[in-house]
Amino acid sequence: MDNESVDMDILQLEGIKVRPQSSVPAFVLLLLIYIFIMVSNIGLVVLISMERSLHQPMYLLFCNMSINDAFGATTIIPRVLGDVFTPMTQRYIHYYECVTQAFCAHLHVATSHTVLIIMAFDRYVAICSPLRYATIMTNRMVVALSVSAWTVPFILIVILVWLSVRLSRCRRIVLNPFCDNASLFKLSCENVLINHVYGLGTGMLMMAASFCSVAITYVRIAMVCLSSKSKALNSKALQTCATHLAVYVILLLSGTIIIILHRLQNVSDHRKLASILLHVVPPSMNAVIYGLQIKAVRERIIVIFTRKKKKILTE
């Protein structure tokens, strides 16, 4: 009995199917993407932290996104990289490691939505109430928004994963490239209706909340821009809002594709690839979009590289 219970704690990851001749290119490509995600996102956080001119609510709130993107990529990509050269029959993971990975993966996605919500609120105040912006978006407000952006998803995901952990297990194979909540409750032979309902309800709640907040924000901003004759205001609103909207659309499309593919038959390989892309595409795109599109950040990056170039030439 003891041996059987120990065996049930060692799960087998089906992973992604990679042909032997494609293993090296796939590994190198994914490794380069991971390095880019970590360097770009952590680099932006360091830049914003060190440059006093960027100590503004907009950029400080964006740090939450960069930290979350680095966290989400680290949750998934290193494990997938390790499995590229591992035969499918030898891809093992301990149950509690699987639970931890599932928790972190869902926390990353949920936090992505809540961070976009608080960033939408910041843009709303900045454009619709510019005279009150400094009094509303204080350091205390920035901290409160940041804490709430992490706390709310944390509580929701703790409940989500607990509903799966409480179930008994009768299977050992995880039909996914990494562990997520669906992988956990599919290990059970019990009735998992409550898991489906809560999981789908939580996912739809997050997407609906972020969609409504973004939609309301941009409707209000559009009304302000249409009624304003200031070209400077309209240009600033268009630039910052287009950046925020692009990031949101990428996240929304990635999440929607996963939800659809999870409920379709005979699309296992497509679902696996899409689940990995959810933790690869948004983190790799967000830093590029914000780093290159936001003028203040772009200028600071150019100044830093210019200084380094001059220093090298003088030496």
Rank of each mutant, 00 (worst) to 15 (best):
K308V: 08
P57R: 04
I302N: 00
M204Q: 13
K310F: 07
L61D: 02
V80Q: 12
V28F: 07
T100C: 12
I76M: 02
N139C: 08
G82N: 13
R171C: 03
M204A: 14
P57H: 06
A26M: 15
M223Q: 02
Q56W: 05
P177A: 01
N139W: 07
F36Y: 14
P130Q: 06
Y59A: 05
R91A: 10
S112L: 06
G199W: 03
S228Y: 11
P57E: 07
I48L: 01
N139R: 10
S40C: 07
N68D: 10
N41A: 08
D269G: 03
D7S: 12
V214L: 10
M50C: 14
P130N: 12
L200N: 12
C179Q: 05
S228T: 13
V18I: 15
Q239F: 00
I16K: 13
M88C: 13
G72D: 11
A73L: 10
Y290H: 01
L131K: 14
V161T: 11
F154Q: 07
M223S: 07
L278S: 03
R307T: 01
E315S: 13
M8S: 03
P130F: 08
I302L: 01
A246F: 01
C225V: 13
A246R: 08
V84F: 15
A246G: 03
W150F: 15
G72N: 09
V249P: 04
T151C: 14
C225L: 00
G82Y: 09
A126P: 05
V147F: 09
Y248T: 04
K229Y: 15
I289M: 02
A110T: 10
N3S: 09
F211N: 08
I77R: 09
Q90I: 11
Y218T: 04
I118P: 03
F36K: 13
K308F: 00
F211G: 11
C63I: 02
L245V: 06
V224T: 14
S146W: 00
E14Y: 14
Q293F: 10
N64D: 02
M1I: 00
P20V: 09
E97F: 12
V147G: 11
S228P: 09
